[in-house]
Amino acid sequence: MASSMNWEAARDRLRKLREEQHRCSDEVVSLWEDVLCANSYRLGDELWMVHEQVCIAALDCGNKDVAMMNLHALQEQFPNSMRVRRLRGLFFESQENYDKALKIYDAILDIDETNTLIRKRKIAILKAKDDIRGAIKELNVYVERFMSDYEAWMELCDLYLQEQDYTKAAFCLEELIMSNPHSHLYHEKYAEIKYTQGGIENMCTARRYFAQSLKLNPNNMRALYGLFLSASNVASSKSKDAKTKKDNIKYAAWAAEQITKQYKEVARKKEVDTSSQLTSILHMMDEIQITQTS
């Protein structure tokens, strides 16, 4: 398709992708090679933005030759540019030459220690090298400096989960919930961590946060299942009083009812058989009632 475009249409397409911040890497490289490259001088001052755009796209696609050609053009024009140095680091990363990439990134941080993009690249390298503990250490330093970077907190949480350090993962989610208490996903993930930790107190906490997630998003099926399972565990526990068990049977029954309704609605709209799922839910509810009666 790229080869069928005229030069102006290809230029405008790349411009639109930049403005809307879409990568579309394969398309970008194709437009450059098939249409724009031969007459790139016509781009004027826009040429340097296109070189950067194409270089990043080529790295995404693993096209070393196109990436190198565009990177060389940028290096000749802007030999002292931090952005071009970052592209050099990305190039070495793409070749798995992590030591050279780290040297470039460290040199940039010596000049600008607040460069968040470079700090994130260092963390990405540690993850690529499967150095999860090193990545956790770097991320902890990062979030101390940039506490409002919520994506970094979530990344740190996921790394702690990989290490099965659920207490610290839960702490990261607590920070996220304080920053955005209206995110049903934060409450849901925090509940899942507490559920995974196990124990009745954690199960009660999980139930409360699953319930809050549902309050924020009543259609959250994952939270519904979480509420059902956590309430069921508390109801079946031997270490809770009769009132707590009775209340949790009600919570589990309500969650089961909502799950059943949603399955029936899906079955009605899409004409699929959900009987096996419904049977499983009803069987679990019967088990809870038997446990409570005994």
Results as ranks from 00 to 15, higher is better:
Lys215Arg: 14
Arg11Ile: 10
Asp112Asn: 15
Lys194Met: 06
Lys238Ile: 08
Ala2Arg: 11
Ala242Ser: 05
Leu176Thr: 01
Leu229Tyr: 15
Ile259His: 01
Arg13Ser: 13
Asp158Ile: 02
Leu90Met: 01
Asp158Asn: 10
Glu151His: 04
Ile259Asn: 04
Lys16Cys: 06
Arg268Thr: 07
Cys204Glu: 13
Ala169Tyr: 04
Glu201Asp: 11
Asp106Tyr: 12
His22Pro: 00
Glu20Lys: 10
Leu159Trp: 02
Cys61Ser: 13
Thr279Met: 02
Arg13His: 11
Gln164Tyr: 07
Val66Tyr: 11
Ser239Met: 06
Arg85Lys: 14
Asp26Met: 04
Lys100Thr: 11
Asp110Lys: 15
Tyr251Val: 05
Lys264Leu: 06
Cys55Ser: 09
Arg119Asn: 02
Glu155Asp: 13
Arg42His: 08
Ile108Val: 14
Ile249Phe: 05
Lys240Arg: 13
Pro181Ser: 11
Cys61Lys: 15
Thr205Trp: 10
Ser81Asp: 12
Asp130Lys: 13
Ser237Ile: 02
Arg268Gly: 01
Ile123Arg: 03
Lys238Cys: 07
Phe91Thr: 00
Glu8Phe: 10
Asp34Gln: 15
Leu59Gly: 06
Arg268Gln: 06
Val141Ser: 14
Asn63Ile: 12
Gln164Pro: 04
Tyr41Glu: 14
Lys240Ala: 05
Ala170Thr: 05
Gln277Ile: 04
His283Thr: 12
Glu188Asp: 01
Ile288Tyr: 06
Leu47His: 09
Glu27Thr: 11
Glu155Gly: 03
Asn220Glu: 12
Phe146Asp: 11
Arg86Asp: 00
Ser280Asn: 08
Tyr263Phe: 07
Lys16Ile: 10
Arg86Thr: 02
Gln75Tyr: 08
Arg133His: 09
Asn70Cys: 15
Gln53Ala: 05
Ile259Thr: 02
Lys189Asn: 04
Glu76Arg: 13
